[in-house]
């Protein structure tokens, strides 16, 4: 069986895996990272989105062997155990979820969006989350949450500008 060496949420794992094992199954079933859910079998829904070397990917569409030598960040790697990540907090504060199934993927896709564009418009947020489906919220509160997180994260990076 192929060998993989992969960093997940800051921890290095060495494993033998079946070639057909999907990254999402590796994360959930081998590493117990069940914070990353599986929503569909068609690559449409984005619920399983994680970051691979900092870029969003749908972990159902990546083989575990393709993650060999790469860094993966799941939603479980965002908070520090005490405090939520600003994006997680914004989703909570804006009530950007109902059932919560899409939320991990939404949060990871939203972080990817802010990496490219720290101050996105509502339209840019919607385009950036194009690959993530939510069947509960109508997206309004999700867009608000991403905007709130973007504002907060920019101010945290440039506190003097925020005060002026």
């Amino acid at each position: 069986m192929p060998h993989v060496s992969v960093d997940v949420d800051g921890v290095r794992y060495e494993d033998e895996v079946e070639a057909r094992l999907l990254l999402t199954h590796y994360l959930r079933d081998r590493l117990g990272k069940v914070g990353t859910p599986i929503g569909c079998d068609t690559s449409n829904c984005g619920a399983c989105t994680v970051l691979m070397d900092g870029l969003s990917v749908k972990s159902c569409s990546v083989l575990a062997v393709q993650a060999d030598g790469h860094e993966i960040t799941t939603v479980e790697g965002l908070g520090d155990g005490q405090d939520l990540h600003p994006m997680q907090r914004a989703f909570h504060e804006e009530h950007a979820l109902q059932c919560g199934y899409c939320t991990p993927g939404m949060i990871m896709a939203a972080l990817d969006l802010l990496r490219d564009n720290a101050d996105p418009s509502d339209e840019e947020i919607r385009a950036g989350l194009e690959g993530n489906l939510c069947r509960c919220t109508g997206y309004q509160n999700i867009v608000r949450a991403v905007r709130r997180a973007a504002d907060g994260m920019r101010q945290a990076e440039r506190p003097e500008e925020a005060r002026s």
Binding site: T49, M52, L55, V57, K58
Partner: peptide, 9 residues
């Protein structure tokens, strides 16, 4: 093409 996550891969 598709969406950002798909365009990354």
């Amino acid at each position: 093409v598709a969406d950002p996550a798909v365009r990354h891969r």
